[in-house]
């Protein structure tokens, strides 16, 4: 099978890889990079369990081809805490117990981070709309709504920390690199 060169930043670390054109981002992250917090619930883009941030925007890793992340920046649940300190949204999910079996939790938290990047002070309706594609069969939904609102509060207090992706020079450098390979 044809393999394609791929340079991608995952959780802030640059990886130089070569992947088949049909490799899903989900499998790349789990099987090659060992990031088991990326979870597969349906494989057809209908449950949000596999959500990761691509340049800070939530995407379904089950529907994203790995090659399309060239030169971009991927954040998984493993990359959210910094220097051993939980991300404010993780902290809020912990405090509000926005989880039960935990299987949907990484996707839920990352989607919430994506929301807060776009909208630092969401209403309940904005939360349920944005996270509406993330299924939780334990259905601890009310806890999650509270967790996202509390996470928003904490992010605002922390001076807008929702950012979960390297922005600025590093991202620009990676993007440039990706272009270079294509050319």
């Amino acid at each position: 099978m044809n393999r394609n060169p791929l340079t991608v930043s995952v959780n802030g670390a640059e990886h130089v890889l070569s992947v088949p054109g049909d490799r899903r981002l989900l499998d790349l992250l789990r099987d090659e990079l060992g990031l088991m917090g990326v979870r597969e619930g349906c494989g057809v883009g209908a449950c949000g369990t596999c959500t990761v941030l691509l340049d800070g925007v939530p995407v379904n890793a089950c529907l994203t081809l790995a090659v399309t992340t060239r030169g971009r920046s991927v954040t998984t649940i493993e990359g959210l805490a910094r220097d051993g300190e939980l991300h404010p949204v993780q902290q809020a999910f912990l405090e509000e117990r926005g989880f039960q079996c935990g299987f949907c939790t990484p996707g839920m938290i990352l989607t919430a981070v994506g929301l807060l990047r776009e909208n630092p002070s969401p209403t309940v309706e904005e939360v349920t709309d944005y996270l509406g594609g993330n299924l939780c069969r334990c259905a601890g939904y009310p806890d999650m709504i509270r967790a996202v609102l509390r996470g928003a509060e904490r992010c605002r207090e922390a001076g807008g920390r929702p950012s979960a992706t390297p922005e600025g020079p590093e991202a620009a450098r990676l993007r440039a690199m990706g272009k270079g390979e294509e050319g």
Binding site: M36, E40, L80, L86, Q91, F93, L94, G102, T105
Partner: peptide, 19 residues
């Protein structure tokens, strides 16, 4: 009391059978 499985679950570290 807080759930004892909280810290691993919010950091995505639990290992399930599928892993």
């Amino acid at each position: 009391v807080p759930r004892v499985d909280g810290p691993p679950k919010v950091t995505g570290t639990p290992i399930y059978t599928v892993d």
